[in-house]
């Protein structure tokens, strides 16, 4: 499973993925989870720019810097 995981930054625009793991400091992980980025949550990448991205989780759009998106490990949504 781990080998199939990739960072949210690597997800192309318009693609749905499933959150598998958060790898950051506890404060950030808690905030991300409260925003809906729980393990197993479905995330859709709306815009993926060179430094930031916009994704949709629980029907809410969240803008984030790539350095945060890199801490969100995802697998393809099936």
């Amino acid at each position: 499973m781990r080998t199939l995981m990739k960072n949210l930054t690597d997800v192309p625009q318009g693609t749905r993925v499933r959150v598998r793991h958060l790898q950051s400091i506890p404060e950030l992980c808690s905030r991300l989870r409260e925003l809906g980025f729980c393990e197993d949550a479905v995330v859709r990448c709306v815009v993926n720019g060179s430094r930031q991205l916009i994704c949709e989780v629980c029907n809410t759009r969240i803008g984030m810097h790539h350095s945060i998106a890199r801490t969100i490990l995802v697998t393809p949504y099936e």
Binding site: L35, M64, H65, I68
Partner: peptide
């Protein structure tokens, strides 16, 4: 600084 993380309202 903490990197940017923000809800974008509809």
């Amino acid at each position: 600084s903490l990197p940017f993380l923000m809800e974008l309202p509809p």
